[in-house]
Simulated scan of single mutants.
Amino acid sequence: MWRRFGFIRQLKLNLVKFIRLRGSPDEIAKGVALGIFIGMTPTFGLQMPIAIFFAFLLKENKLAAALGVWITNPVTAPIIYGLQYESGRLLLDLPRARLPELTFESLKAMGGEVLLPLCLGSLIFGIACGALAYALTLRAVPLFKAWKIPRWPRPRGLHIHRRKGD
Rank of each mutant, 00 (worst) to 15 (best):
P78L: 09
G23C: 06
W152K: 08
W70T: 10
A140T: 10
A128T: 15
I71R: 04
L123S: 12
F18Q: 06
D93A: 08
R162A: 13
L83F: 14
Q84C: 13
M48I: 15
E60G: 02
G121Q: 06
M1S: 12
Y81Q: 13
P95V: 11
L34P: 00
A131P: 05
L67K: 00
P25A: 09
G126M: 06
L118W: 01
F37V: 05
I79N: 04
R151V: 05
I50Y: 03
V141T: 05
T72K: 07
P74N: 12
R20T: 08
D93M: 10
D166E: 15
L123E: 06
Q84F: 01
G112Q: 09
E101S: 12
H159I: 15
P142R: 08
V114G: 03
H159Q: 11
L90V: 08
N61A: 07
Q10Y: 11
G88L: 02
R96F: 14
D93S: 14
M48D: 01
I71S: 09
W147V: 09
T43I: 13
F5E: 13
L92I: 12
G88P: 05
L91R: 05
L158K: 14
P117S: 10
L158T: 12
L91K: 06
M48V: 14
A97Q: 06
L13E: 15
V141H: 04
L57D: 05
I52W: 00
S106M: 10
L21G: 02
G35R: 02
I28F: 07
K17Y: 11
I71G: 02
G112C: 01
K30P: 01
G35W: 00
K145G: 05
R151C: 02
R96D: 05
L57F: 10
E86I: 08
F44V: 15
G88R: 02
R156L: 12
A51L: 01
S106A: 15
M110Q: 04
A131R: 11
L118R: 01
M1V: 09
Q10H: 09
E27F: 11
L102G: 05
P74V: 06
F18M: 06
L91D: 04
T72W: 10
L58F: 15
F18H: 01
A128K: 05
R98W: 05
L92V: 08
H161S: 10
H159N: 07
W70H: 08
F44R: 03
L21H: 00
P100E: 08
N14T: 07
L120V: 14
M40E: 08
M1A: 13
R20G: 07
V16W: 07
D166M: 09
